[in-house]
């Protein structure tokens, strides 16, 4: 098996924020089952802040560890702060990843961004709807 840091193993063995948010404000679905990694990120946003976040992941040890780590990194952050999360930050928070697994941290970054984009799109949609009623 690949050489993982203790933090990666710890995160994989005890993942945080695993699951689904039924009434999520934004959902990011990234990855491809053909490549063996799929990450779904659910966020709940209140007053521009991420107040709840959950993930579902099909993937290897590193994919699950990065999913869990990224959700902890952005929990409580403003939308703008969360958008600034980088794959490097996720990997560093796990004491690094084997080079072949760096794409998992990229997936985590993309997952957060996709969830926020989805949230923003829905917000815009809501506003437009409100505008239409006038």
């Amino acid at each position: 098996m690949l050489e993982y840091s203790e933090k990666v193993i710890e995160e994989f063995m005890n993942p945080k924020n695993m699951g689904k948010i039924e009434d999520a404000d934004g959902i990011g679905k990234v990855g491809n089952p053909v490549c063996g990694d799929v990450m779904w990120i659910y966020i709940k946003v209140k007053d521009n802040r991420i107040v709840d976040i959950k993930f579902q992941t099909f993937g290897c040890v590193a994919a699950i560890a990065t999913s869990s780590k990224v959700t902890q990194l952005v929990m409580g952050k403003t939308v703008e702060e969360a958008l600034r999360i980088t794959n490097k930050a996720v990997a560093e928070a796990l004491d690094g990843l084997p080079p072949i697994k760096m794409h998992c941290s990229l997936l985590a970054e993309e997952g957060i961004k996709a969830a926020i984009e989805d949230y923003m799109k829905k917000q815009k949609h809501k506003k437009n709807k409100k505008g239409g009623k006038k």
Binding site: M1, F12, G36, C60, A62, K101
Partner: peptide, 24 residues
């Protein structure tokens, strides 16, 4: 699910197996 995660958890219980998954 993906093979590597299963291998890692099996290893936790002392079971050594292998997988044809990409990740390994």
């Amino acid at each position: 699910i993906e093979g590597e995660g299963m291998l890692a958890l099996l290893d936790f219980y002392g079971i050594s197996a292998s997988s044809g998954s990409a990740c390994t």
